[in-house]
Design a protein around this nucleic acid. Structure first.
Lengths: 230, 230
DNA sequence: ACTCGGCTACTCTAAGTCGAGTACTTTGGT
DNA sequence: ACCAAAGTACTCGACTTAGAGTAGCCGAGT
């Protein structure tokens, strides 16, 4: 379904901006800054110019004029094409209607969490929790300050980001609580693995110990203590 | 703080894997598949080999031997270095302790939502909601099926992903509800903009109309109906 | 009158990323 | 004994991206 080249949402943003009026790239970036969209759409100059060029190659935008002002660099003004309008609608439709799997860094980090000793992990999660709470307060203050001055229609994305933040905050809070009270079912397993590792146990032997003490094929397969294949 | 080259979490994953035992790249990918980590860590071959090479250049891993088995391609076995172990701990620590701002595609899409007419937007959001509900059911079924067979310690990242999904689901559900019942404060504004646009009003004139009817500097600045600078 | 920082408007390069392609091998069925 | 399908272990090239660099311009202070 998705044509190749629907990687960077910045390209979609460019198409949307050009739907309003013709612009040169730097003007696009200024407009996005002005509208506070840099919080929800990642923008940097390198990408912007590359993305516009690639849209041009694909015939979705076209250069209409280049203006030179004194000895400043040229500004190339772009306009959207018919094909560009179609692609814009199609892409935006797809992004709204169909969830895509993404890979937040923290999710990756959590999947590597057993690598750290449990006490260290708890410490770090507590630090994160503190930062998350601060950010939450800041965001809520911002919302209150904005209230009334800007139609909610243009704040939907910020409300979404806030909802995700709250979810993360509550998740980490719960996890920290469980760890602190020793409720996480496998705290014993976790501690044991690190004790053995600190004592210099080799991976293969670790596998044996852990399997004996806790049983279960799954534990062996998932602690990275399985023998190398072959 | 963060050394350049802490972009792809796959590199961190490689370091973690090599902490357990030496491996060749393909074996890393097989191990990650076996442990179901491909759901939380984006993996593809091209990146994997590139990432290992870059770690080698930075002195964080080293090639220990290359084995040839019949006429198959060579396998180069890598081991982690002292510097690699340090970098691994430091990086993982940083990822857990410090939240980083990320840019989900849906957040970008939401910030462009006013581009679509409100009825169309509602339709698309309803489609998304349906898909999200299905995914939610599937995930919950998976958790029930897994229950007991795998220590919760190794499912934390999946629980996190699930928490984020629920948050998105509830957000979209609420948004859909508000739109359906016409409660979103600015529905009138939203409809008016698209009415005028359909009628062929030019951006500059649109600005005038909208400002007259709804007032407020903010509306003008944010609907993309401001005059081009200069 | 001068200069200093900040804005405008890009440009360049090194690095990273993706996904298809390749070329062998093993396994399982008939 | 033979074939197809799945698995192993990479390789390649085209495309993206990040972020620093640059060069002129403009206004505010000293």
């Amino acid at each position: 379904m998705a044509p190749r080249g629907r990687t960077n949402p910045l390209a979609l943003t460019v198409l949307v901006l050009l739907t309003e009026r013709r612009m040169h790239p730097y003007e696009m970036s200024a407009t996005l800054r002005e509208r506070r969209k840099e919080d929800s759409i990642k923008l940097n100059y390198g990408s912007l110019y590359a993305v516009v060029e690639s849209l041009q190659k694909r015939g979705l935008v076209e250069a209409t004029e280049t203006v030179r002002d004194g000895k400043r660099p040229e500004r190339t003004v772009y306009a959207i094409t018919e094909a560009g309008s179609e692609e814009m609608l199609d892409w935006l439709t797809d992004l709204i209607a169909n969830p895509v799997k993404e890979y937040p860094q923290f999710e990756a980090a959590l999947s590597l969490l057993p690598t750290l000793p449990p006490d260290r992990a708890l410490e770090l999660l507590e630090t994160r929790l503190k930062t998350l709470r601060e950010t939450d307060r800041t965001i809520e203050a911002n919302f209150r300050a904005m209230d009334g001055t800007m139609p909610r229609l243009f704040l939907v994305e910020a409300e979404f980001a806030h909802a995700l933040l709250r979810a993360e905050l509550e998740f980490v809070d719960k996890l920290v609580g469980e760890l602190r009270r020793g409720e996480l079912v496998d705290l014993r397993l976790w501690r044991r693995i690190h004790e053995l590792r600190r004592a210099g146990t080799m991976p293969e032997d670790l596998a044996t110990f852990v399997t004996e003490e806790f049983g279960g094929e799954e534990v062996r397969r998932l602690t990275g203590t399985n023998e190398p294949p072959q």
